[in-house]
Design a protein around this nucleic acid. Structure first.
Lengths: 145, 145
DNA sequence: CTGATTACTGCGTCTGTTTGCAATAGCAAT
DNA sequence: ATTGCTATTGCAAACAGACGCAGTAATCAG
């Protein structure tokens, strides 16, 4: 699979090692193809090989984030979820605080905003891997009453 | 103090109670006048009255956030900090991932962005209480090499 | 002032996540 | 294939933060 190749190449280039655990975790992420909590990922990996530790899952997810292959959505309410950035590149996460729904928004949407922060404050915002809290259309409607 | 009055009024209006613990926590936040972790706040409160529990600190901070009297900066790397929104109203937090520094930015900066999210996705972004990760000028420079 | 109501607290416990450490196992060079 | 270097792992323990519960105390009506 394409993403596997990317992964392996990225690892090698930066002096990391390819381990079965990492392969499994990547494969599971690929299967899920959507958002999943660390625990869900751990569950799946564990069912393939029962000797993989949850802390390895966390460490691998961190690593994958560092390589920009995975992004993390912080729903605020204690349920971080992870997502493989395969086909669809980086994007914004609009997290609804009403229903928990996560909407994927085009990163380009925030370009002007990032630009402004840079001009005014010299700050280089990393807007990918960013979760924006708020209300989805449905919950905003419901909340108006 | 003005903010104390605001606090008490807000509490009463919504049917909450004024307790010594809440007064102490508010007073500590006022003393600090800047960012502090829950643990730091707990430490100070504890030194005044040793029978205050850390979970009360967390609960009170949550409450204060609900009343928009406190905002929370999530530096990403496990060190949430809290801040009294007294004089300066709500604002954006630009969190540097290099040095951990937190820059306060004008909320107005993000208005256009919020507007766009609303138009395109019908999403009502809550951009106050939002921490934006990135690099401050100094760290961005250092990182270029 | 007194008593009733019920929000709030402290405690213990639990979940999700990170970290230190010794043992293991990739990888490159031989 | 063997070796050495060291990144990576599993484990256990530490950690922040949330939660359920039973007792306490702030508030308000009388």
């Amino acid at each position: 699979m394409a993403c596997e190749q990317v992964f392996i190449r990225q690892l090698r280039e930066r002096g990391f090692r390819l381990t079965p655990q990492r392969e499994m975790i990547l494969s599971v992420l690929h299967d899920i193809d959507g958002l999943a909590t660390a625990d869900e990922i751990y569950g799946r990996v564990h069912s393939i090989s029962s000797s993989v530790d949850i802390s390895t899952v966390y460490r691998t997810l961190d690593l994958l984030q560092g390589l920009d292959l995975v992004s993390c959505v912080d729903a605020g309410d204690d349920q971080r979820r992870y997502e493989l950035l395969g086909v669809h590149g980086p994007h914004l996460h609009l997290v609804c605080q009403g229903c928990g729904q996560v909407i994927a928004a085009d990163l380009e949407m925030a370009q002007a905003f990032a630009e402004r922060l840079n001009v005014e404050y010299g700050f280089q915002a990393a807007l990918d891997h960013l979760s924006i809290p708020g209300l989805c259309p449905a919950c905003a409607d419901a909340g108006d009453r």
